[in-house]
């Protein structure tokens, strides 16, 4: 898909979508959104960028390999559960701290793990199935 308009467009839209995906992730505990939706949007933005500029460009933006994101996401989720086991004696038991008026807790960390993993999974599939030779 070699279109100048698309290429220029996605170059602008991609960062916006990435920011939007983080926004979805952060507000997801209280409003529509969350790790799954946010991760999908982030992956879609990079896939779109890859479609117009080539997957290698998309890989360059991502910097790390998507498999690394899968591992990081799964690890984050598992660690957030282990914190519950360590502090409250039950795996995945939630722990909450208040920082000012903002509440932070292990479920949020878990959602971050989901986000990272979904980005990694989708991009792994997109990059693999696009079958473009890595540069």
């Amino acid at each position: 898909m070699n279109s100048l308009i698309l290429r220029t467009g996605t170059t602008f839209v991609m960062p916006l979508l990435l920011v939007f995906s983080l926004f979805l992730l952060i507000r997801g505990h209280n409003l529509p959104g969350g790790g799954f939706a946010g991760g999908l949007v982030a992956a879609a933005s990079l896939a779109l960028y890859g479609l117009s500029n080539g997957m290698n460009a998309s890989k360059a933006v991502l910097r790390v390999r998507p498999e690394t994101l899968i591992a990081a996401g799964l690890l984050t989720a598992v660690v957030s559960g282990a914190l519950g086991l360590a502090v409250r004696g039950s795996y995945l038991a939630p722990i909450w701290w208040s920082i000012g008026s903002v509440k932070v807790g292990t479920p949020i960390l878990f959602d971050v793990g989901v986000y990272l993993l979904v980005v990694g999974v989708v991009l792994t599939m997109v990059f693999a199935l696009s079958a473009e030779e890595p540069s």
Binding site: H29, G34, D111
Partner: peptide
């Protein structure tokens, strides 16, 4: 600690 019940369940 969350108002979006779907997300809290997940």
């Amino acid at each position: 600690q969350g108002r979006n019940v779907v997300n809290v369940i997940l």
